[in-house]
Each structure stands twice: as C-alpha cells, then as structure tokens.
Design a protein around this nucleic acid. Sequence first.
DNA 1: CACATGACCTAAC
DNA 2: TGTTAGGCCATGT
Length: 89
Amino acid sequence: MKGTKFQIKVWKYLMKIPKGKVKTYKQVAIGINRPKSARAVANACSKNPYAPTVPCHRVIKSDGSIGGFSGPGGKIYKEKLLKKEGFSL
DNA sequence: CACATGACCTAAC
DNA sequence: TGTTAGGCCATGT
C-alpha cells in the first residue's frame, strides 16, 4: 500500500463498503473527514493501483449515475460489476 | 509557487 | 435535456 495519506484514507474507507452497496463520492469525502473533497476522492480512486482490493467501482456520483471508470469496458464494466454484486435499486 | 488535469457538484441558460 | 461556467480538492509537472 503506497500512496499519499489522502489516497490511503480513501482506499481504506472504500474497503469498508459492504458488498452489494454503493457510496457517492461526496459520502466518501465526508467519511474521510473531507466533505468538500469529492473531486480529490474521485482522483484517488482513479489512481488506486489496488483495483480489486479497493472497490472503487462501488463509488458513484451523487445523482446515482455510474460516473466513470478507467479500465476494461469503462463505465460499462462498472455497471455490470455492480449488478453482479447485487446493486439493484 | 503557478499551472494543468480529473471517475465531482451546483447553478444558470 | 444538453451545454457552459464557477467552485472545489489532491496530485504531478
């Protein structure tokens, strides 16, 4: 686990997210005691080198949209993954 | 330190 | 409904 303090905090918080659940970037930002760092949170997720370890795919926008995802299939992969995990409204 | 980038948020047209 | 503009934060150059 290497990275900045901020990233570590974000990744740790993401790991705490129960399977089948999703959080918004804002919620995560608030969780790490940085209510106004939604952008930085998204940044940390995109830079997260522990993709499967850190469920960055369980983080969505405040609107409930997938947001984005850097990887195979992009947001499509994220959508499918969430559905597989049980994320169904 | 200044500038640029990004998976954001909100308001306004 | 789609686009623009401003604000916000962390990171890298």
